[in-house]
Design a protein around this nucleic acid. Sequence first.
DNA 1: AAATAAATTTAGACAAAACTAAAAAATAGT
DNA 2: ACTATTTTTTAGTTTTGTCTAAATTTATTT
Lengths: 220, 220
Amino acid sequence: MLNYSTSEENYIKAIYHLQQMDDMVTTNELAAELKTKPASVTDMMKKLKAKKLLNYERYQGFRLTNEGNKVALGIIRRHRLWEYFLAEKLKFTWDEVHEVAEDLEHVTNKKLIDKLDEFLGFPRVDPHGDPIPDANGKIEIMKKICLTELPLNKTAIVGSVSDQSSKILELLEHKNISIGTRLEIKKRFEFDNSMEVRIGRQPAFTISKQLAENIFVLNN
Amino acid sequence: MLNYSTSEENYIKAIYHLQQMDDMVTTNELAAELKTKPASVTDMMKKLKAKKLLNYERYQGFRLTNEGNKVALGIIRRHRLWEYFLAEKLKFTWDEVHEVAEDLEHVTNKKLIDKLDEFLGFPRVDPHGDPIPDANGKIEIMKKICLTELPLNKTAIVGSVSDQSSKILELLEHKNISIGTRLEIKKRFEFDNSMEVRIGRQPAFTISKQLAENIFVLNN
DNA sequence: AAATAAATTTAGACAAAACTAAAAAATAGT
DNA sequence: ACTATTTTTTAGTTTTGTCTAAATTTATTT
Ligand SMILES: [Mn+2]
Ligand SMILES: [Mn+2]
Ligand SMILES: [Mn+2]
Ligand SMILES: [Mn+2]
């Protein structure tokens, strides 16, 4: 596995994430994601294509090749292991870890990452509930559904939260919801799509549509 | 405190180390240390001078300003804390930590480093026995002398080792010497400058001139 | 004090990664 | 089918950090 620059890695990771949504990623989408200009994206796409990490024909959008996906999973492994380290060992809060991991992920020393993984006890998910690829790049995809889709009176475990801001963290802490919390929907209101949620035998409480849309529960 | 590029940081740190030896650092010295060319050094010296990190007049050599020294101590703090982390928590051996720390040191997030320091229990020295600057950049200079200077029959504690290769590590492990070992010189031989060393009440053993030159003991 | 050698700086080139502005291609609207 | 809009690419610059080769300054010999 060759080495890639920080900039190349940031592009590769962003493409990986975007292609989970739409299958073809476009120049403008990627420019927006990376807060850069479309012209810069085109330049980099040519470079990544030359390195066989990308399938790309001009004006047609792009997808990572198998090799590109492997590289992306390596970066994501590093990112999420460092997030776990920061939260679990250094007691960073949930909303602080991403920014720091954004830099740490670019230190590409296999032994460092594999020893870190071992030191952390081979965690399976990061502090946001996203799965951590193993040393072979294998990632455990957990089937999850949005809280807005969960049937009434069926308990489920919170698996991940898509927003990572301090604002949503503040709200989730206030409502006592975190990754791993088992909850159920008791009622939905059509007027504003708010819902009544209950954790265990505690009294039910309300959460807004906006909050529910960012909470994903394990579907088992 | 502004932010500096990885390249600028590597130059600043190298100058700091070189000026511990000679007081003025020269272009060729620095080029050799960084495995770069003298022309590149001159370019960077102009830049660091413009940023007021360096006192530099052409053809005269250079030294860091007070501000430059502060920046250097920040880099060294990060480097040595990561070395300690790698050795103590991830069980890297002594000769492996430097290379990895060389990259990790450039992640400049104050909170990360201060929390790491706390997590590690505020270590005072790195795995090579070199002192770790505190959060204010204060560094504890321990008076040390080379083992070649230690008087006969006077016990002293090994404080640091200047070479950091796996070869010296192998030898030191075989001789049971590490940072913190209390030892004394029983005899010196003029023919090859080898010496008989004793640790506690164990039988004395021989170490070569070359090895002795790389071992420094606390002078108290 | 020249002459020679060594160290240092300058000049000019290059690669990586970004940008702006203009051109070209694809898409949408009528 | 033609026009207008949006998207994407190209062309030409800029900044950072590196290099080689040539010029300049300083240091060392004779
Ligand atoms: Mn990143
Ligand atoms: Mn995450
Ligand atoms: Mn470094
Ligand atoms: Mn060290």
